[in-house]
Amino acid sequence: PESADLRALARHLYESYLKYFPLTKAKARAILSGKTSDSAPFVIHDMKSLLEGEQMINSRQMPAQELRRAEMSVMHEVELRFFHSCQSRSAEAVSEVTEFAKSIPGFVSLDLNDQVTLLKYGVIEVLIIMIAPLMNKDGTLISYGQIFMTREFLKSLRKPFCEMMEPKFEFSVRFNALELDDSDMALFLAVIILSGDRPGLLNVKPIEDLQETVLHALELQLKTSHPDSLQLFAKVLQKMTDLRQLVTDHVQLIQLLKETEVDWCLHPLLQEIMRDLY
């Protein structure tokens, strides 16, 4: 009966994952390998193709005020415009992760301050994990899989923009080698969110209890669906250490951007998350 409960939990989290996240690993891999009936993604590999593809790099629901803000601002440079679009999509993704978190059984019963803390500290880690399936060693899908941006192009941007994605590529190549599927990913994301060691948590015990249940579900699922992958559960959990370093480095780069780019403005939601993070 206990394993039936764990399987039901895994199924529930997988359904939430499909409901809240627009681009699954299965779909992303199909696009990247060309095994989809949809048209191939538009490739951005230089400034010319970036300018051509720019209209496509909009968030799904580009709000009018967002457009106005972009028009009114004095962001002439293509890097800044591009990273402005990335920020809009990231803010949208934060709201998707929030909905996913709320669907984890027991999450909304936690102290509201602790819910805020878990999301504040967990959400960038979750986003880094979620971008991994969109990447291969040569580039990454963006804009819901409509665009493929090459790794070389991202590396060619001026400093510090060129330094933002390379660590994520290095991590993604290692993470993708574990070959998790979307249902494994759903459980792993829930484990990350339910980390009881985030700074400032008020009531750790119920969070750890929830995480332990999800960890059991993840362990059971990995054993059943990847029987030949030795120590996969341990290998997946080890990735959580890399994630913390990636987030620390990412926040430092954003800090650097704020200091060096006069026209840089950080999305208010991302500001909230990154302020006093580490």
Binding site: Q61, A91, V94, S95, E99, K102, Q115, V116, L269, E272
Partner: peptide, 21 residues
Amino acid sequence: LKEKHKILHRLLQNSSSPVDL
């Protein structure tokens, strides 16, 4: 904490309706 994280707080409190970000 809630004061410093108003948007996050609002996302947590609202139902799944689209939130004006």
